[in-house]
Amino acid sequence: MVTVGQIMTRHIVQLDAGTSAIDAAKLMKAHKIGSVLVKRDDDIVGIVTEPDIVRKVVGTDRVPYFIPVEDIMSSPVVGIDEQRPITEAADLMEQHGTRHLAVFRRGRIVGILSVRDLLHPVSIDEF
């Protein structure tokens, strides 16, 4: 069985609440990722994804310099334990209509799992 922890992205990129949508997009571009976690103080309060920026900013003709990420983020962040099978992660994404999950270990976020991660080639014997 392939677990979430085996294929997740361990590099977590965060930004502060109040950051503009344009800065979030620039951060995603710089790190070549499709999502960033939003934090307030030391707490993760949401996640902003590429589709959030496209649909909630660009697609509505809003000016991204003046839109704080908390206006477009998804909250709370949907997550899964790193020891769970990837099939459960895919089901959870489907249930919540999301392409990204926070990955938890003992209640702490230790990675991000995206639908792209689920597409990585895996041996059929491991399922």
Rank of each mutant, 00 (worst) to 15 (best):
M1G: 14
V2T: 13
T3I: 11
T3F: 03
G5A: 07
Q6G: 14
Q6P: 07
I7D: 03
I7A: 05
I7N: 05
T9A: 02
H11L: 14
H11R: 14
H11V: 14
Q14S: 11
Q14H: 08
L15D: 11
L15E: 10
A17M: 07
G18L: 03
G18S: 03
G18M: 05
T19I: 02
S20G: 09
A21M: 09
I22M: 12
D23A: 13
D23F: 04
A25H: 04
M28Q: 03
K29V: 15
K29F: 11
K29C: 13
K29E: 15
K29G: 13
A30S: 15
K32W: 02
K32Y: 05
K32S: 14
I33M: 11
G34A: 07
S35A: 01
S35W: 00
S35P: 01
S35Y: 00
V36G: 06
V38C: 09
V38S: 10
V38Y: 04
V38M: 06
V38G: 10
D41K: 15
D42N: 12
D43N: 13
I44S: 06
I44V: 15
I44K: 08
I44G: 08
V45H: 09
V45D: 10
V48S: 01
V48M: 03
T49N: 03
T49K: 05
E50V: 10
D52L: 08
D52I: 08
I53Y: 04
I53P: 04
I53G: 01
I53T: 01
I53Q: 01
R55Q: 04
R55I: 01
K56V: 05
K56G: 06
V58M: 10
G59F: 12
T60D: 03
T60P: 07
V63D: 14
P68T: 07
V69R: 10
E70I: 10
E70K: 13
E70M: 12
D71Q: 15
I72H: 03
I72A: 03
M73Y: 00
S74V: 03
S75A: 15
S75E: 05
S75D: 08
S75F: 06
P76Q: 02
P76V: 06
V77H: 05
V77L: 11
V78K: 06
G79S: 14
I80H: 11
I80D: 07
I80F: 08
D81S: 13
Q83D: 15
P85T: 06
P85L: 02
I86A: 08
T87W: 02
E88V: 15
E88M: 12
A89K: 07
L92G: 03
L92R: 08
M93K: 07
M93T: 11
M93P: 14
E94F: 05
E94H: 07
Q95Y: 02
H96D: 04
G97L: 12
G97M: 06
R99I: 01
H100G: 04
L101R: 00
L101Y: 00
F104A: 01
R106I: 04
G107T: 12
G107H: 12
G107E: 09
I109K: 06
I109H: 02
I109C: 12
V110T: 13
L113W: 00
D117P: 01
L118P: 10
L118N: 07
L119M: 14
L119H: 05
H120A: 13
P121T: 09
P121A: 07
P121H: 09
V122R: 14
V122E: 06
S123A: 14
I124C: 04
I124E: 13
I124D: 08
D125F: 10
F127T: 09
